[in-house]
Design a protein around this nucleic acid. Structure first.
Length: 560
RNA sequence: UCGGGGAUCGUCUAAUGGCAGGACCGGGGACUUUGAAUCCUCUAAUCGUGGUUCGAAUCCACGUCCCCGAGCCA
């Protein structure tokens, strides 16, 4: 069980074990997930959430949900709500520790004053452009601001007046006094506070100066007693700055550990780009089933269990990596195969008349709801003289390995009878519009008493009992496995897959699907997994395709 | 000619001086009232060059390549 579970031996857990053995945090383990409420959670966040929560769970520790809401110009309450909902859906529990960096604004302000008093922070009057110029470049050191050596008294006065709203946006900032020549640009006197006359989603208009993320993040972890502050690689060279802050402030120091963020083929994780997809209408909102957001996957029919399984299988490391989308899909199929009830639905109906079946007769046939789960029971499906089968299950002139219905061939209708195609009805253009078949009454239920074998079993729906439904077929949103790799002059939008959504109406479904509710998941036998969309109306179900079944026949066809 | 990270099957990830293993993908087969599931099986890797060592993916040296960093974003 632990042998093939990389999560049990990942480097993060190993470091925590070491800390526990050395008694560094008195054996405590306390993690957190710190999202900025400026977008919806995506599958990459799920990796971070499950990592942090999983560690807290495994080590008997605690887990906080904390919003890093330090920039009121980009953050919204809608995002806070969606993040809480999605995190809950994933199955993580922060007990009563729903926290906000904005809860610490007063403390952060006091600490800024402390830094000023210690001569380690100053108010800078340089413009944003000037600050950038003074910062130097990656290869050249920066130079010190002319305001760097103001007196403590002047800094204290100016900073308080910044807080009091005496200065316009952008006119001054508070900076830490670290080292303008550092090879680490984060240490070249980073900005701590900027003036922003903006309304904050929680603190309203109380503040007109807001802490920068770098100033708020480490101290927020410190306040919360976080032991292991797990974040992504790009914050690796911010760690020295966070350590500098807690040291100068003389406060509790968490250990930051960085891991590689998730990348997935055929998908984007950039919140900026996802926002663009939503804003420009390339998708129908953050919860569009083509989005890599948790709400999108949820609407598509993915389960939190499948996502958790996925986040465990991909492991945790520092290598830049791009996980094959096929692995996510594998996890989804595995879970759904285990748990979703089977039903029959015909997506592209072709009428079949059983010519030797009595007109007006209906019989109820037993069907197994889930062969993987006996407790799911059985149900009855109505059979009658006129049926629908899948159009692609018939070929008049079949290739070598096609062993479904063809003229003169016998196949099985699942749970029903063996039928043989005896006639093909066409319209004036030569399109097949109807099939005439005969059935063998002795094969009721799908078994032939004489041991006769058929190569294929087809799903079907009784025409007069069928429920009409809509089916939304989703494919990858991007046609390229690496949508962000674009040629000169192109953007990721050029990689959008024009066929990412196909809407099928007039699909014929077995009558048990008449009263389904949004969120219910099914396997349409021989086709795939589907989830009832919230757009469904009573008697008019709409299904989103979660994933296709693995399809050996499709592979054989593609090869040629 | 800056600072910080990283290179193991096609992909993700183990092995932390002692048989390079697992999963996904792909190939083949068995079974089959889902061309599903399940089962069996095959393909396939230590960035390079030296060195240390009985023994190196692992330690050392020198290279090469990749990622991140110059927001008053997070």
């Amino acid at each position: 069980m632990t042998t093939d579970s990389p999560s049990s031996t990942d480097f993060v857990r190993r470091m925590i074990v070491e800390d526990n053995e050395s008694g560094r945090f008195d054996g405590r383990v306390h993690t957190r997930f710190p999202p900025e409420p400026n977008g919806y959670l995506h599958i990459g966040h799920a990796k971070a959430i499950n990592l942090n929560y999983g560690i807290a769970r495994d080590f008997g520790g605690k887990f906080n949900l904390r919003f890093d809401d330090t920039n009121p110009t980009k953050e919204e309450e809608e995002y806070v709500q969606s993040i809480i909902e999605d995190a809950h859906w994933l199955g993580v529990d922060w007990e009563d520790r729903l926290l906000f960096a904005s809860d610490y604004f007063d403390q952060l302000y006091d600490w800024a004053v402390q830094l000023i008093e210690q001569g380690q922070a100053y108010v800078d009057d340089l413009s944003a452009d000037e600050i950038r110029e003074y910062r130097g470049t990656l290869t050249e050191p920066g130079k010190e601001s002319p305001y760097r050596n103001r007196t403590i008294e002047e800094n204290l006065d100016l900073f308080e007046r910044m807080k009091n709203g005496e200065f316009p946006d952008g006119s001054r900032v508070l900076r830490a006094k670290v080292d303008m020549a550092s090879g680490n640009i984060n240490l070249r006197d980073p900005v701590l506070y900027r003036i922003l006359h903006a309304t904050h989603h929680r603190t309203g208009d109380k503040w007109c100066i807001y802490p920068m993320y770098d100033w708020a993040h480490g101290q927020s972890d410190s306040i919360e007693g976080i032991t292991h502050s797990i974040c992504t690689l790009e914050f690796e060279d911010h760690r020295p700055l966070y350590d500098w802050f807690v040291e100068k402030l003389g406060i509790y120091a968490p250990q930051q550990i960085e891991f590689a963020r998730l990348k997935l083929t055929y998908t984007l994780m950039s919140k900026r780009k996802l926002l663009k997809l939503v804003d420009e209408g390339h998708v129908n909102g953050w919860d569009d089933p083509r989005m890599p957001t948790l709400s999108g996957y949820r609407r598509k029919g993915y389960t939190p269990e499948a996502i958790r399984d996925f986040t465990e299988r991909i492991g945790v490391a520092k290598n830049d990596s791009t996980v094959d989308f096929a692995l996510l899909e594998h996890c989804v199929r595995q879970d759904l195969n285990q748990h979703s009830p089977r039903v029959m639905a015909v997506l592209d109906p072709l009428k079949v008349v059983i010519t030797n079946y009595p007109e007006g007769q209906t019989e109820e046939l037993f069907a197994i709801n889930n062969p993987e789960d006996e407790s799911a029971g059985t149900r009855k499906v109505p059979f009658s003289r006129e049926l629908y089968i899948e159009r692609e299950d018939f070929m008049e002139d079949p290739p070598r390995k096609f062993y479904r219905l063809v003229p003169g061939r016998e196949v099985r209708l699942r749970y029903a009878y063996f039928v043989t195609c005896v006639d093909v009805v066409k319209d004036d253009d030569g399109n097949v519009v109807e099939l005439h078949c005969t059935y063998d009454p002795a094969t009721r239920g799908g078994d032939s008493p004489d041991g006769r074998k058929v190569k294929a079993t087809l799903h079907w729906v009784s025409a007069k009992h069928a429920v009409d439904g809509e089916v939304r077929l989703y494919d990858q949103l991007f046609s390229s496995p690496f949508p962000e790799d674009v040629a000169e002059g192109k953007t990721f939008l050029d990689n959008l897959n024009p066929d990412s959504l196909t809407v099928l109406t007039g699909c014929k479904m077995e009558p048990s699907l008449a009263g389904v509710e949004a969120g219910q998941r099914f396997q349409f036998e021989r086709i795939g997994y589907f989830c009832v969309d919230p757009d469904s109306a009573s008697g008019k179900p709409i299904f989103n395709r979660t994933a296709t079944l693995r399809d050996t026949w499709a592979k054989i066809q593609q090869r040629k």
